[in-house]
Design a protein around this nucleic acid. Structure first.
Lengths: 268, 268
DNA sequence: CGAGGGCTTGAGGTCTATCAAACAGAGTGG
DNA sequence: CCACTCTGTTTGATAGACCTCAAGCCCTCG
């Protein structure tokens, strides 16, 4: 039975507020979304590739991976979602996606009806913009992911991946840059980087030997953050954090929307 | 001097209409956008990574690549944009992106002021949704790109890349599935797939020997489309073409936006 | 016709995959 | 409390894909 789940959704609101401004009413509307909690064990599929869904998945606890599946069954993880992330906000407008979603470690996911999200989008244009902006941030991370997988060797790629996770873990309030818990197996890391699990293991050992990264019994330690960021060629700019709230005023726009320069007069 | 450029922009409108419905007024508003044409030679940078821009780039002619640059200068192309594509619609809301844009072959690009696009977005909520949906389609392609680069060998990756380009070329009205012109060098293909140019050359020769793909003097021939799609594990679903127009009604929503089930009553 | 960019080819080296087996740790049941 | 099982990690050896460097070739354009 769908019900309200304010405490968990406040994480989503926080994520949106990182990049967008929303009025009190709009914030309340988001916190008031109905949801339906679902538990998932590690490796369990939440959404199978190509399936049409009528709800979005919000990560309340644990971690969720978005993946692309090959014909042979191998998977390439294309994004990781931490608590506070809406994995497939995209599905609101495009309910049939090509990707799938799987749990990384035991996770709790809230299903949120598309109908309700659409309702929000239609009532509050500022929320529509905030959602769009969230999709943009997601795409920016994805874009970097391509570079990470395509042009870096295992050492640099792994370093970059851990840097990204560290930053987002800290943002989500789940640890510090240098110390956090990560419920992912080496095999799942290998699916994220597109290399074999065996090679992940050897690369982790190499990074460990250099005292750059320690990943043992689900706990991550980064003794020298700057050194690891250097190895991974990591620059957090691409995460689009807290920098564009003023660039495109979404708050207050629902009041009047004064046209500065009418496009009509410029035609022809 | 910015001026109207209707004939070129109609390509953009067509692309939007592939996935969204827009009223006559909204369509006119898009066609009436002011723009400023810019010529670019092959390899020339249109937007450097990390730079803040105040205009979006629309491809009027040629091809544009989005790329992620590594510290050493190597590039990973993360997306290709054909005529009719707005390369960085994202920049309207997030003007400082982490990626760059470069010309693939001689190209003509229209610069469109963010101010005007924002204006459209604020006046016409349906356009905002159409833009969001366009960003989603872009992200879906990007997601597939990760799998292509991460989990496929050179043969399959190259086959998939050519399949994708073929479909989009046909959509853009620039050729057929089996025959089109491609102004990209082997080196640029190598930057797209994250492998060396030499290896691209050898892989092209292998595909040529199998009579799967012929790429000579900028002309592409695909004698047996299905065979190539099989080699590349290509399934066009991910391109989100013409399938979701009815799923999320954006047309007509600006008229009334009747709330089906008020989220307010569901709270608590 | 010359110059230059792009393509092609060869040889050797590196990174990463694959396979197989041993090992470790957490949870289970007797 | 001790096997026992299961998943995940570690290790070794071998094979394959791909890279790098370097040189020669070809086409196109001025």
């Amino acid at each position: 039975v769908p019900k309200s789940n304010q405490p968990a959704l406040s994480g989503f609101l926080n994520r949106l507020l990182l990049r967008s401004s929303l009025s009190a009413e709009e914030q309340d509307a988001i916190l008031g979304l109905r949801s339906h909690a679902v538990q998932a064990r590690s490796r369990q599929d939440l959404v199978q590739p190509g399936r049409t869904v009528s709800h979005a998945c919000f990560v309340a606890d644990g971690m969720v991976g978005r993946f692309d599946a090959m014909r042979g069954g191998e998977r390439q993880i294309t994004a990781l979602h931490l608590p506070g992330d809406m994995c497939d906000l995209q599905s609101v407008l495009c309910p049939t996606a090509g990707w799938g979603l799987m749990a990384i470690g035991t996770s709790t996911v809230l299903h949120i009806p598309h109908a309700d999200l659409l309702n929000l989008v239609m009532r509050y244009p500022a929320i529509a913009l905030a959602f769009w902006r969230d999709t943009i941030a997601d795409a920016s991370v994805l874009s970097k992911w391509v570079g990470n997988v395509g042009r870096k060797d295992a050492r640099a790629g792994l370093a970059h991946l851990f840097c990204e996770i560290a930053v987002r873990m800290e943002q989500a309030g789940l640890g510090t840059l240098k110390n956090f818990r990560l419920n992912a197996t080496q095999e799942q890391l290998s699916e994220a980087l597109g290399i074999s699990a065996v090679h992940i293991n050897r690369t982790l050992q190499a990074l460990r030997a250099e005292n750059l990264l320690i990943f043992r019994s689900r706990q991550v330690q980064i003794p020298d953050w700057n050194a690891l960021a250097l190895v991974g060629d990591f620059d957090p700019t691409y995460m689009l954090i807290d920098r564009h709230k003023e660039a495109a005023p979404s708050a207050g726009f629902s009041r009047s929307a004064p046209p500065s320069r009418g496009p009509a007069s410029a035609r022809q």
